[in-house]
Write a protein that binds this DNA or RNA. Structure first.
Lengths: 175, 175
DNA sequence: CTGAACTTTCAGTATATATTGAAAATACAA
DNA sequence: TTGTATTTTCAATATATACTGAAAGTTCAG
């Protein structure tokens, strides 16, 4: 029966997406389960409960709970409540542009800023030292800091723009 | 004595950079030792040998060797030979713009392209399926793929440009 | 209140990843 | 060749990270 084949094909593709997304995520410093839950919810037609996620990915309650909170903390998931039910249901932000903006801003806040603090501190500590080695070290810290500041600033501007305004600009610039 | 204080301050700043770079790197899916070796060489006034790196970071020969090869594989280090010596000395690329370009292109090749392949495969597999769920899944895969393709394309263009040509453009755009 | 529905926590355990160090392989001067 | 300096490999081990599941905590309808 064609309907069953189609349903099976959809399931296969979705499983493949969830599984591969988990693999790729580890290369980007994101834990496997978190990425899989995100992939599951990103492709779920309706919000899912903890129990449904446990069943779909075959993982424990504690694991699901921890990673759901983390994803909510990133702002990638919304909690939905159904009338007359106490259970929480989770729904992923599905707009790709919004997902990008959320991740860009959160990484900025959580990782880029601490890195910049270290670079600035190292640059300051050596600002007044004499001698080739100290001056060269200071220059390296300053250059790195300046670069990261520019890159982060560009990312920030992009992620604060309206997609419809910024994307044409980027395309035009890169033509 | 001031000279000693200065030397000590430089050492402190450098140690702090190396140590913190190692911490930050793990958030980006790069292993700690690899980042520390890179930080060490980035701030070394001259190329260093395996033994010198072992001594500076207090780590084993095998570990140093593995991570040096990996860094050479990324193109972030050059191997230098001294006349009359058999030992290899390692020198880091110090131009921040070049470092950025190397990392951008390597991550593109190693991680973005495989991810794109999965997205495209999932989109294709479900292209002809009927029904709301299948169509919605297909759209998600397509949107994600399109977005990653654009972002990677922009990154590629930037990293292939002359720094002096692209940076002013970016700044102008973001003014 | 009480108790059932649900969520959170966390000690114990499992898994994945990184590191060691010594042996094997390689390179090369004599 | 042969001996020595150097690099590479890899089994054993250590460490970091993720996961489980049950117990404790919370919430709320009745």
């Amino acid at each position: 029966m064609t309907t069953e084949t189609h349903a099976a094909e959809l399931r296969t593709a979705r499983d493949r997406f969830i599984s591969q997304w988990g693999v790729i995520s580890t290369a980007w410093g994101i834990n496997r389960t978190m990425a899989q839950i995100h992939a599951l919810l990103l492709t779920a037609p309706t919000p899912l409960s903890t129990d449904e996620i446990m069943a779909a990915l075959q993982i424990s309650r504690g694991n699901v709970n921890t990673n759901l909170r983390e994803l909510v903390g990133w702002g990638l998931l919304r909690i939905m409540l159904r009338k007359g039910e106490r259970k929480e249901y989770f729904e992923a932000e599905k707009d790709v542009w919004k997902i990008f903006c959320i991740i860009a801003r959160e990484r900025q806040r959580r990782e880029i800023e601490p890195a910049l603090a270290v670079l600035r501190e190292c640059a300051e500590r050596t600002a007044k030292l004499k001698g080739g080695e100290a001056e060269s070290f200071h220059r390296t810290m300053r250059d790195l800091g300046d670069f990261v500041t520019s890159a982060a600033g560009a990312m920030d501007k992009v992620s604060r723009s309206e997609r419809s305004k910024i994307m044409p600009l980027i395309f035009k610039m890169l033509k």
